[in-house]
Structure formats: C-alpha cells, structure tokens
Design a protein around this nucleic acid. Sequence first.
DNA 1: GTGTACCGATACGGCCGAGTACCGGTACAC
DNA 2: GTGTACCGGTACTCGGCCGTATCGGTACAC
Lengths: 204, 204
Amino acid sequence: MTSQAADGPDTVVASRRSKITPEREREFFDAVLEQIRECGYDSVTMEGVAATTRCSKSTLYRQWKTKPQFVAAALRASRRVRFAGIDTGSLAQDLRQAARAAGDWSGKDTRLLQALGHAVTSDQELAQALREALVHPEIAALEEMLDRGVARGEVPAGHPALEYIPAMMFGVLRVRPVLNGQYADADYLVRFVEAVVLPALGLS
Amino acid sequence: MTSQAADGPDTVVASRRSKITPEREREFFDAVLEQIRECGYDSVTMEGVAATTRCSKSTLYRQWKTKPQFVAAALRASRRVRFAGIDTGSLAQDLRQAARAAGDWSGKDTRLLQALGHAVTSDQELAQALREALVHPEIAALEEMLDRGVARGEVPAGHPALEYIPAMMFGVLRVRPVLNGQYADADYLVRFVEAVVLPALGLS
DNA sequence: GTGTACCGATACGGCCGAGTACCGGTACAC
DNA sequence: GTGTACCGGTACTCGGCCGTATCGGTACAC
C-alpha cells in the first residue's frame, strides 16, 4: 500500500496536516533565534518574526501557543552537537580540537546564551530547552572525552581537576566578551587549553 | 566662613540643590538593582522603583533623564571592590581567600550580570558602567595578587597561565548556574582553586 | 468539480510602560 | 514672614506588543 509514497513533485510533501514544511519551520526558528541574538529575548516580537519570514502572526500562533513556547521549540530544534565525533586517541589532542571547534561557534552561541540570560530564570520550559540545546550536548561530549582519557590511563580516575574542566571551558568562553569586549576565538581557547587545562590535568 | 557648617539637625543636610540625601539616593539605586536581579533589565519599570521606594516617577526623572541612565548611575554607585585588601603574603592563600570572598557575593552579582547580559550589548553607557562596577575592580585586584606572587618569585614572570586566571575565576563563577542550576558557593570555588588554578600555576 | 482547511493579511481590543505636565504641600533660605 | 524650589501624587499622551478575530485566496483531497 506504499502509505508513504514518494513519487511527489519535489521530495517529502505527501500527507500532512499543516502546510508548513520542515524547511519553512526552520526559517521561523532561525529568524527568532537571530532576533534574540540581536535584540535580546524580551525585545523579540512575534510580529518581527512574522515580518522577516513573510508569514502572518496567525500562522505562528496556530502552531505555538505563546512566545516562550515558540522560542523553546526553536531552541530544541537548533540542538546540534558542535564537537561530538572528536576522538583522536589522545586527550590532549581531543581537548585542543574541542577548543578550536568551540572558538568557531563561539560568537553565535555565546550571544544567544547571553541574550537568554535572564529569561531562563523565570521560565522553566525555556531553561530546560536552552540546556538541552546548547549546554548539555557539549558538556556530555566533553565528559566522554575525559572518560576516554581516563580509560586510556592518561589521567588517573578521580583526578580533582576533572569535574571542573567543562565549567572552565564554558566559563572562559562565555565571559571573554564581558572582560574585554571580544568573543573568544579558536586561538585564544587553544592557548587556554595548553596553558591551563593540560597542566591542571598533569598532561604537559 | 564655615561654608560646610555641620551644626544641622541630623548630619549632612546643609546647602544642596536637591533634597534627595545620599541615603535616599542609595535606596533608589538598591531598589532598581534588586528589581533587575529579580525581573531582568527589560522588565524593570521606573514605576516599580518609584512604588517600592515610595517616591514619584517625577522625582526619578528629575534626577536622571532616562531609564538606562538611571540604571547606569545605580551601577556606578554600587561599585565596591569585593576582595581588595587580601594580601596574606602567599599567592596560594590569596587565591583561596579570593575564592571564598567571591563565593559569598556570587549569588547577587551573578544574577545582576546575568540579568544585564544583553542590555549591555546595545547600550554603551550601560556596558561601561557595568564593567566599572562589577568587573574591572575585581579583575584588577586579582591581577595585583598575581603580580605580587610573581614579584615574590612564587611564579615565574610570563607564566602562560597567568593571563587566564581572572577569566577562569569569573567564568566558573558565572556559568555554574547555567550548568547545574545553582550558584557557585565558597567551597566550590576554593576546591576549584586547589584542583585547577594552583596546579596550572605550578603551585601544588 | 466541489469541499475543506490552512495560509497570509489586516484590523482590533487590551494592557502596560516611558516620559511629561500639573498641582498642592512643605521645608529650607534669607 | 515671605519666597522659592523641590518633593510626592496623579493624570495624561503616546507608542508598542500580545493574542484574537475575520476574510479572501488557494492548494490539496477525493
């Protein structure tokens, strides 16, 4: 019965209730996240998103009940693991690569995190979505990296610095703009890894 | 001519143009900063501040032209150096004490920094005030601490970890809430110093 | 070809906050 | 004692956004 026949005109346009394609949805999400980065969460308006995506407010409100729910959905959909898949066989190399990768998306994600800074403390769903989207995946990837290093015997299990590595990486990334007005780039982070992280782990 | 005669009824009430005493002004400032911590910068209203301090909006607008200027003034006035004066003669001890001190004001200032997170990127005066009030003094104090340690020969001059210490301390402090939902307390920070900062400096 | 239901547009009600204007009370200045 | 100027209170204008309602067009379903 080929219930999902795909002989349609383009690709996946068969049987759906909403006429909003996943691509269109991503446009909405990208637009709202970009507006958040630029104007801050509170200043983002559904009208603004509707205008830049050339849809109508009604369309947005048909899919998502309120602005926080809409934003939370956008966050969840933007979930990507930036530096998963890094596995060079050496913890030091893994950390350097992670630092380099982090430097690349630093600007965008830091701005997003910054802009959502307070909204998160008052809306539980938003906080959850933010953590799922931007924080947890990276932390988990880092922890896996460290676990592998421990398993290989590069660092003794229970080394006191281990629990702080993720917080340090994230922390340095995030506060750089506040301290001297520029985002942390890859070079800065790699040098940080070499100057601090590796010595703290006894790796250099 | 005793132009500043102080034989008045209470204390310093002689010759001024505004009837707002410095104590009263501090009430305004405390109120607005507290509202920012609780509701975020955008949600703070002049009306709210006026209400909680039992003054009138007119009074606020007579002294400060706009809301951002008012907030910036409040920030500048709140400038205090939390861990200046720490000088134990040992860099390791200095850093431990700084960590402990930081843990104590962590909640309040982190919330403030968080709440102002984005407002700062769009208002230059606010950004400047925030940096003057909450960031620069602490960084400067930390750097003095490190300089003294170098001068005493505890750490070689130009040690690569030196430039990252302030960013690390600040960073860990600020991201703790995002990572696992609680503010960094003194214990957490002291253990961080011992597990990471001191080893990175070759001090333990 | 007819029906259905979603899309985009627009208009609307309601709320709220920034600043402003005005007004009576009052405390210090001289 | 008189003047002055600031304080607190209130009322007001203006603008902006949330969320809803309504309407014509249109694309897919059957």
